[in-house]
Design a protein around this nucleic acid. Structure first.
Length: 383
DNA sequence: GCCC
DNA sequence: CAGTACG
DNA sequence: GGGCCGATACTG
């Protein structure tokens, strides 16, 4: 859910819709094509990045705060409504002065209209002011920003009497991950300039190639979608020979730790070594830009080539697109996630039968087209 | 919260 | 299992 | 009034 933060906290500079270099797309069409695509992705020069109109900041800023508050409180549905409403308002080429101008916009319903009305007339939203004065809301919102602490745990700590991050540091029940999230709270919050992500991606490609020649390395997430800065890094790996990805991740992680690129572990699990599976290997952790100590969140995901396209789609996002694709798949009788596309064989007994393999697609484009969805370029996926 |  | 995280 | 992503994937 970093996109929320992208949207709310920072100036989420969007990439141009058509100027980003097309050749940088890591779309894979054949094993031969893979190698030439195994290079920096979405490396568009800054001239191709533009600032959105961004009139109506008065409204989107407030909506962004409400988004964060509802999410912290565990009301994800309501939070998501604000998440969808914000970009709609951001894209408007004029400054809203009357509710009538937004009455028929998608995702702007009765409540949103009332809020907009109040904001354009009074310049503020009493609902938000009420929230921001609330000790409980303030505390839970703060705690929820710690990696590994969600609404339930934040509430638990609040009820235990904790009010500050320092209070939490004395809390015994913190998990390993939460402790790290707390220790590097400010670091993790710090965004990464695009050019630094680019450099780190290159570093990962070099190290990856040394360990496993021919490995495909793509930095997904907001980076691949062309953002000017990123909240974290999402790296997706695979190998064209459809087998030697197995056992790659542990070697890579060890090597990256030896060179002090990876610094702390949050999640590390390996599946690809067992059986003839189509397992996905996962590493979540903290890394540092060479020569620095500032911690950044990084995710490494290794996919078997057969389901690589699904991993790439899922880890490029954004989350809105992922949800939309999954709903679309379901409407056509399929189930979609980052590991594949399956016929919705929900057995009569109620539980879904597992075991059937995913439909196979070589490229993202083929998946989009199979689903009847426009084959968006990565920079077009900021929905 | 929005939408059907 | 509940909670959290990922896009 | 009910759905809103996921055969998610992981931790404890």
């Amino acid at each position: 859910m970093n996109d929320n933060k992208d949207r709310v906290d920072s100036r989420d500079t969007k990439s141009a819709s058509s100027l980003a270099s097309r050749s940088s797309s890591p779309e894979v069409t054949s094993p031969d094509a893979i190698d030439s695509l195994n290079k920096p992705v979405g490396t568009s020069d800054s001239s191709s990045l533009y600032k959105p109109p961004d009139l109506n900041r008065n409204i989107t800023q407030i909506f962004g705060k409400l988004l964060n508050i509802y999410r912290a409180l565990g009301d994800d549905r309501r939070s998501f409504s604000y998440y969808k409403a914000i970009p709609v308002i951001e894209k408007l080429p004029f400054k809203i002065e009357s509710v009538d101008q937004v009455k028929h916009l998608p995702s702007i319903g009765k409540s949103m209209q009332d809020h907009i009305q109040e904001i354009v007339t009074t310049g503020k939203l009493s609902k938000l002011e009420h929230f921001e004065k609330d000790e409980k809301v303030k505390t839970i919102s703060l705690f929820g920003e710690v990696w590994g602490i969600g609404p339930a745990t934040a509430l638990k700590f609040y009820e235990k009497g904790h009010r500050t991050l320092d209070d939490l540091r004395n809390e015994e029940s913190l998990t390993h991950s939460q402790r790290l999230g707390l220790k590097y709270f400010d670091d993790i919050q710090t965004r990464i300039p695009r050019h630094e992500v680019e450099e780190m991606e290159r570093l990962l490609q070099e190290v990856g190639e040394e360990i496993l020649p021919g490995v495909i390395v793509v930095c997904g997430g907001s980076y691949r979608r062309g953002k000017a800065s990123c909240g974290d890094m999402d790296i997706v790996f695979t190998h064209p020979d459809r087998k030697s990805h197995k056992g790659f991740l542990p070697k890579l992680v060890k090597r990256l730790k030896d060179m002090e690129f990876l610094r702390e572990d949050l999640v590390f699990s390996v599946h690809s070594t067992e059986g003839t599976d189509s397992g996905v290997d996962t590493y979540f952790g903290l890394c540092t830009y060479p020569g620095r100590e500032l911690r950044h969140r990084i995710d490494l995901k290794v996919y078997p080539r057969d389901i690589y396209a699904f991993g790439l789609i899922a880890w490029t996002g954004n989350d809105v697109l992922n949800r939309r694709l999954r709903l679309l798949a379901e409407s056509k009788g399929f189930l979609l996630d980052d590991t594949g596309l399956y016929p919705a064989t929900h057995s009569s007994g109620g539980k879904r039968t597992k075991g059937s393999a995913s439909l196979k697609f070589e490229t993202e484009k083929q998946v989009f087209e199979f689903l009847g969805f426009p084959p968006l370029e990565p920079h077009e996926r900021n929905l």
